[in-house]
Amino acid sequence: MSRKKDITGGFFIGVTAFSAFVIIAVIIILLVVIIKGGKDTFSWEFLTAFPEDGMMKGGIFPAIYGTALLVLIMSIAAVPFGTITAIYLTEYAHEKSVLAQTIRFAVRTLATVPSIIFGLFGLGFFIKFVGGGVDDFFLGGELKWGQPNILWASLTMALLTLPVVIVSVEEAIRTVPRELREASLALGATKWETIKRIVIPGSRSGIMTGTILAVSRGAGEVAPILFTGAAYYLATLPTSMSDQFMNLGYHIYILATQSANVDQTLPIQFATTMVLLLLTFTLNLAAVIIRSRLRRKAK
């Protein structure tokens, strides 16, 4: 009997350990394959040069630049908006009010919407409706804003990453102790003064975590920018909000499916993937560190 138990016990330990091992193995294989394939191409020049020869040679600088610009504009839109929403939800809305419940439901739903839907929404809303409207009303029908560009792509991406910001900031606001709010109010501060001087400064690391997670998500997503602003190839960097841009994730897709000779671009694909992975890993790691510090502080 006890022998049988030992065997079953051992069997389950084996199964669980194996499952855990598979996950680690996947990550290791992924990294090894990518680094092995990309390390010879990866160089300083690769990071700083434009693509050449129909993207078969050269670097990926415009894609890095475009990705950075995309996440920058996205953050400028998503972080303040998400922070304000989080402040409303935690400080002003009654926990059980219909409005607060509705907002929370919307945030949760937003987080589960497939990213391609955001792309379609961006195309329909930002480009056709807003952009097209601006062109019709202010530019007499000249086509300027009613086409894909970096602004619409960034705003579309901002919608996708908004839930990440809201949830992180909310969590941080909740860690600001009630005693500090009371101290501020008891000194004759209004609620808004208390939020501005005590709650927001106390939530800085949460706002930071939210921003980093949003940036890391935004840097990796491709679907939302497919129809809203990413370009196949551009000879110049974007200089205006109405310009299109190149993007790391999209660049990988292009190289892998659309280039003249897919096999020949393989090393570039690997190296580009390496850059993208490195970027998102670093950002996520930073977010994890800041967040764990925040949680320790909350205890």
């Binding site: 102790p177 005693e179 500090l180 009371e182 101290a183 501020s184 008891a186 000194l187 005590i198 400064p201 106390g202």
Partner: peptide
């Protein structure tokens, strides 16, 4: 004015 049980200095 009010002074609380647990001292609550701002950071």
């Amino acid at each position: 004015g009010m002074v609380f049980q647990k001292s609550n200095p701002f950071a």
